[in-house]
């Protein structure tokens, strides 16, 4: 059996205590929520925290509040969100993203906080130590070279979260708590350019809340590409949010994910679309434009060339659905 390395296990009662422990333990401590990302990584020995700070007894991070805005506690399980009928009607794109994650059983365990903080993924990295030794390791863990892009100075491991692109498109904000206090950031600000330092969140910060502003008249859609209907991470994903003024685009957010270390906000496409009618020609053009921002490399399932092609198809379909 694949077994875990040993660790110290702490289960604080609230977010403040969690933050305190993280500060005290230093960078060798890691938060574990559902464990569905961290435990496999630990079994493969590419994440080896000496101390695990579990959120399992932390109750102030659970629950969903719905006023104008929707506020989700980071420790809410994916299944909890999936079962939330109001969430499904109010934020169907987010619901679709949640529902597309892994499997029903894993969604009973995984949390949205863990999904936001999900480690980046790469076929050269999500392997055990013996395997990685066969390729002489790689930059993200134990080695020096990125085998996906050997001349690269950064890691291209892929942000594979399903909820992140939707949260970014919807203008969500993340609240982070540490012993230094609380700060709230725009969702996109959470993510770094490098697959190694993929979060701007400091190691001692706890993600506590995700706030999704009132979506007004805007409608959103999420499209995920993967080989199988369950288990699989996205190999390309598109989140689109459009607010119309009559039949013209007033505001639009278009976010790609699973095509690089950082979710891609398609700014020029957004600019291009503003004020336009979503005719098939415009949508087609926008799709081409957006696909330029996607630079998938050969480190996930499916060929990178194919992923690049389907990005534009999926953008087209996403915008088409919002027409």
């Amino acid at each position: 059996m694949m077994r875990l390395p040993s660790f110290r296990y702490l289960a604080p009662k609230d977010a403040a205590e969690t933050a305190k422990i993280l500060t005290g333990e230093g960078p060798d401590a890691m938060i574990v929520a559902g464990g569905t990302d961290l435990y496999p990584n630990m079994k493969r020995r590419h994440q080896m925290p000496k101390t695990l700070v579990s959120l399992r007894n932390v109750n102030d991070l659970r629950g969903v509040e719905m006023n104008g805005a929707v506020t989700i506690g980071s420790n809410e399980t994916l299944r909890g969100l999936e079962r939330n009928a109001e969430l499904k009607t109010r934020l169907p794109a987010l619901w679709t993203a949640v529902q597309s994650i892994s499997t029903p059983i894993l969604r009973n365990m995984g949390t949205i906080g863990g999904n936001v903080c999900l480690d980046t993924r790469c076929n050269y990295y999500n392997q055990n130590w013996e395997w990685r030794r066969g390729i002489d390791f790689c930059m993200k863990c134990d080695g020096t070279v990125c085998w996906v892009a050997p001349s690269s100075s950064v890691c291209w491991a892929v942000n594979s979260s399903d909820t992140v692109p939707v949260l970014i498109a919807m203008g969500a904000k993340f609240t982070l708590v540490s012993t230094r206090g609380e700060r709230t950031i725009e969702a996109i600000e959470m993510f770094g350019e490098d697959g190694i330092d993929y979060l701007t969140k400091q190691k001692d910060e706890v993600l506590t809340r995700i706030e999704i502003p009132d979506q007004g008249n805007a409608t959103s859609v999420y499209r995920k590409v993967r080989r199988r209907g369950a288990f699989d991470f996205p190999v390309a994903a598109v989140a689109a949010r459009v607010e119309m003024d009559g039949d013209e685009v007033k505001d639009v957010n278009l976010v790609l994910n699973a095509v690089g270390p950082k979710p891609v906000v398609c700014e020029s496409t957004q600019e291009f679309l503003k004020g336009k009618k979503l005719t098939p020609e415009v949508v087609e053009e926008a799709a081409k434009l957006a696909a330029r921002g996607a630079k998938p490399l050969d480190n996930t399932d499916h060929l990178s060339m194919w992923r690049k092609k389907v990005v534009s198809v999926e953008v087209k379909r996403a915008l088409g659905a919002l027409r």
Partner: peptide, 30 residues
Amino acid sequence: KHGCELGECGTCTVLMDGEPKLSCLVLGLE
């Protein structure tokens, strides 16, 4: 039973408070 110990097959499913969970990704401690 177990088929991967990494959450990738579902073979190790047990019920915890009635909900299916993967026993390979839950600690005994938890």
